Amino acid sequence: MGTRLFAAVVPPADAVEHLEAFLEPRRDAADFRWTLSTQFHVTLAFLPDVVDHLADEYVDRLAEGLERTPIPDLRLAGPVVFPDAAATRVLAVGVAPVSEAADVVLERMAGRARNAAVRVGTTVDGQRFRPHLTVARLRHPADTSNWVRLLETYSGPEWPVYEVAVIASHLGEGAAGRPRYEVLAEIPIGG
């Protein structure tokens, strides 16, 4: 069994604090498994089972793919639910690129993160890229229409993305049975 990896954009402290301030007074209203703010991230590519010796090669390939990427400006805003509001399993905040060009760059970054996995010969999750930051997981599917309406009012501060993190996820090794995240690399974007 290999390592679970993901390439992600990690929001800066001010964006995390802004979202945390919005969510904190509302958390007691639902029995969700809330994501710790220290684990907030926007996944570009998820690699469920990477053979250990391929992790460094993945980092190298991803760095090559991102070296000439323009720096996009992003903001967290609006709701995202999986699979839908009537039977939600995952509640998330959307990622709103500040410009159409930033939207294209974010899509390109996700494509390059996935392509790097394919190039080193490892499996990448094939689901369509839908940028989001997970704020809660539900123990059982539930209607989250009220949460969707609430998150429609949320818009966080803008921030420039200067790097992509490659993170190992060690299931069950964190507090309260959560995953423990280990940052393997922080890859600068070329600008």
Score class of each variant (00 low, 15 high):
135 V>Y: 05
29 A>D: 09
189 I>C: 11
19 L>Q: 09
97 P>K: 04
113 A>T: 11
176 A>C: 07
83 P>I: 03
104 V>W: 10
148 V>D: 01
59 V>T: 07
4 R>K: 15
49 D>E: 10
48 P>W: 12
24 E>A: 14
166 V>G: 14
29 A>V: 15
93 V>W: 04
11 P>C: 14
95 V>C: 08
147 W>S: 04
45 A>P: 02
125 D>M: 00
190 G>W: 04
116 A>Y: 11
38 T>K: 15
83 P>K: 00
15 A>Y: 14
160 P>G: 05
189 I>Q: 11
180 R>W: 10
150 L>H: 06
121 G>T: 01
100 E>F: 05
9 V>S: 12
1 M>C: 13
54 L>W: 10
163 E>V: 10
176 A>Y: 10
41 H>I: 04
7 A>L: 02
129 F>Y: 06
16 V>S: 15
36 L>N: 12
183 V>I: 12
83 P>C: 01
6 F>V: 02
138 L>N: 06
171 L>P: 12
106 L>G: 06
11 P>G: 08
27 R>A: 06
50 V>G: 06
71 I>L: 00
160 P>D: 05
106 L>F: 03
65 G>R: 02
156 G>N: 09
2 G>A: 14
141 P>D: 07
36 L>Q: 13
64 E>Y: 07
98 V>R: 04
94 G>R: 13
97 P>N: 01
